[in-house]
């Protein structure tokens, strides 16, 4: 408190030092509360997208007859949950494997290594990644290269002769099967 007095030498208007101490504390407290009040929504707005846990939605990939049995074809679709602001990036693709003997496997185009788009080769029945050379067999299992696992697979179902997959986010190591 003695410093406080020293500062107002000559110009003090006679307020008591103790009053000033209280005022300072109130000020600090108010600023503190205000800062917290302000930073919670601000920081919240920044990190909120990390906590979005919307379930995936079913996307129609077309009639099952579009996918010849025994072959693997690229299906293009618009990501559910995307908006016009996303422009072309709302377009997405998946590899649809129509298994001989029935049934579908739908793989993400994203390599399980670092997410680059893998390409299907019908002749050797392999998926190859252009970035670091990951290779997968036709059932999505890892064949060679750096990927730590096989291709990400979408949940899929067939209803009324149409193929649906559950999609809505960028496939990644921590959410896909």
């Amino acid at each position: 408190m003695s410093e406080g007095c020293a500062q107002c030498q000559g110009g003090c208007d006679g307020e008591k030092p103790s009053r000033r101490g209280v005022m300072f504390k109130i000020g600090a407290g108010l600023m503190g509360v205000g800062t917290v009040l302000a930073s919670v929504p601000l920081a919240g707005a920044l990190v909120a997208p990390g906590f979005v846990r919307d379930g995936d939605t079913w996307v129609d990939l077309g009639a099952t007859s579009d996918y010849p049995e025994g072959e693997t074809r690229l299906a293009k679709f618009t990501l559910p949950g995307s908006n016009p602001n996303d422009g072309e990036t709302s377009r997405t693709a998946a590899w649809v494997r129509s298994m001989s003997g029935g049934g579908f496997q739908v793989f993400a185009v994203n390599c399980a290594h670092l997410g680059c788009p893998v390409k299907w080769f019908q002749q050797s029945r392999l998926f190859m990644c252009p970035c670091h050379g990951g290779v997968y067999y036709e059932d999505g299992s890892r064949a060679s290269g750096p990927p730590p696992r096989g291709l990400f697979e979408y949940q899929s179902k067939v209803e009324n002769g149409r193929l649906f997959i559950a999609a809505g986010r960028l496939p990644g190591l921590q959410e896909s099967t």
Binding site: L46, V47, P49, G50, F51, V52, D54, L79, G81, S82, N83, N85, D86, G87, T89, S90, T92, N110, H113, L114, G115, G168, R169, L170, G172, L173, Q174, E175
Partner: peptide, 27 residues
């Protein structure tokens, strides 16, 4: 995003914060 996704436990949350959502887009 794939690199961030590899962080244990909170990787997916961090990825969402980085990308501004569950996918790469306007945000």
């Amino acid at each position: 995003a794939s690199i961030v996704d590899r962080v244990p436990v909170i990787g997916n949350t961090l990825r969402g914060i980085l990308l501004g959502g569950p996918y790469i887009g306007g945000a």
